[in-house]
């Protein structure tokens, strides 16, 4: 039997039906068509499905969809404000902080969560905060630089 769930996704009320064994990632991708959150491992090891759940950074693959009742969900699709990209999104483009782009939504969400907590992180803090987001293309260099650049830019504002 499916369960009826009411949540908020990117500020909008959202309802769906789900089986108990379905993860929140399954529902975001397959039912709500929010395919920006990616499935790289289904075990919480790659971070490609990073979302913000009630203000906390989590892997959507490690949350059951039934747990989302009454919760607030933020995904990559809600990161830009209308046509205005988030400073991290702009800088990822400027700094070439992506190659294939599959890990990019996860990195952006995770980095956003970091900068909301700490706008003056050290390189080491950024690296450890993002250690759960795997990237196989970049060697992380340009991603880390872009997050640091964005933090600096946001501090100046």
């Amino acid at each position: 039997m499916k369960t009826h769930i009411t949540t908020t996704v990117n500020g909008e009320p959202e309802e769906f039906l789900c089986e108990t064994e379905q993860t929140l990632l399954d529902i975001l991708r397959d039912e709500l068509n929010l395919t920006g959150s990616k499935e790289g491992c289904s075990s919480g090891d790659c971070g490609a499905c990073s979302i913000i759940l009630n203000g906390r950074l989590v892997c959507a693959c490690l949350v059951l969809a039934v747990e989302a009742e009454g919760q607030k969900i933020e995904t990559i699709e809600g990161m830009a404000d209308g046509e205005e990209l988030h400073p991290l999104q702009k800088n990822f483009l400027k700094d070439a902080a992506l190659q294939c782009g599959i890990c990019t939504p996860g990195f952006l969400i995770a980095a956003k969560a970091l900068l909301e907590k700490n706008l003056n992180p050290t390189e080491k803090e950024v690296r450890y905060w993002l250690a759960g987001n795997l990237c196989r293309c970049t060697g992380y260099d340009k991603i880390i630089r872009s997050v640091l650049n964005t933090a600096e830019e946001m501090r100046r504002k």
């Binding site: 919480g44 971070g47 906390r56 950074l57 490690l62 995770a110 970091l114 250690a131």
Partner: peptide, 9 residues
């Protein structure tokens, strides 16, 4: 234990 994401849960 695990990543920042894991720490969220």
């Amino acid at each position: 234990i695990g990543s920042t994401q894991i720490q969220g849960r």
